[in-house]
């Protein structure tokens, strides 16, 4: 069952590579939140109650509801163009994301460790590099934040692979960090909208040598 969810996650990465609409991008992020919820639930059911509850709440409330709602709010408030505005044709993107998945698959063959589920590794590394790729190839800065969130989802999957043996305290810290950075990014996206009147990355090229 976990395998199905993770493969669905990979398909969602492929969809992200070709989507043109910010809205569907946000929806995919929410969808990934639901997938993460499912995976976390199956993998961590043996964990003690508070820890499990915390992680489940993080995925379902934070990743699935709050973040997409917040991003939608930022997009609406700033009248950001509805397109993700890629630099490269989508066809190339889909090829590259496929190659990324293949490479992470090849990389996973180097693991000689029976404790780790390789599929988690593959999905996490693919998500990481897809996120980076999206950040590199999109013009709209709010899309950069979304790429960052894709990376965070990958990290979450990777941490599930470890079996989440980190103490509660650390989990809280991690969540807090992500939360604060995303909110900060959102706030500054707002500021950029106010000060620069636009969300094109081209406007952020004033700092040169």
């Amino acid at each position: 069952m976990t395998a199905i969810l993770l493969i669905l996650f990979l398909i969602s990465l492929l969809y992200i590579a070709i989507t043109n609409r910010l809205n569907s991008f946000i929806n995919i992020l929410a969808f990934q939140g639901i997938i993460l919820f499912g995976v976390a639930f199956i993998e961590l059911i043996k964990l003690d109650f508070t820890n499990l509850l915390f992680i489940l709440l993080e995925t379902i409330i934070f990743k699935t509801i709050i973040l997409p709602a917040f991003l939608t709010y930022v997009v609406k408030k700033n009248n950001i163009t509805r397109e993700t505005e890629p630099f490269v044709p989508n066809f190339l993107s889909i090829v590259i994301v496929t190659v990324i998945i293949l490479i992470s698959f090849t990389l996973s063959q180097a693991i000689h460790d029976d404790h780790i589920n390789k599929l988690f590794f593959i999905v996490a590394v693919s998500a990481l590099f897809t996120g980076l790729y999206i950040i590199i190839t999109r013009k709209n800065i709010i899309t950069h934040v979304m790429g960052y969130l894709v990376i965070e989802n990958g990290v979450f999957i990777l941490s599930l692979a470890v079996g989440s043996e980190m103490p509660m305290l650390l989990n809280t810290g991690i969540l807090l960090d992500i939360f604060v950075s995303v909110v900060l990014l959102g706030v500054f996206a707002n500021k950029i909208g106010e000060i620069l009147q636009g969300h094109d990355i081209d406007q952020l090229r004033k700092l040169k040598d």
Partner: peptide
């Protein structure tokens, strides 16, 4: 300053 901040937060977050 805004541009520098944005870049700094973003790169450092990643």
């Amino acid at each position: 300053a805004l541009e520098a901040t944005w870049k700094y937060i973003f790169v450092c977050s990643i």
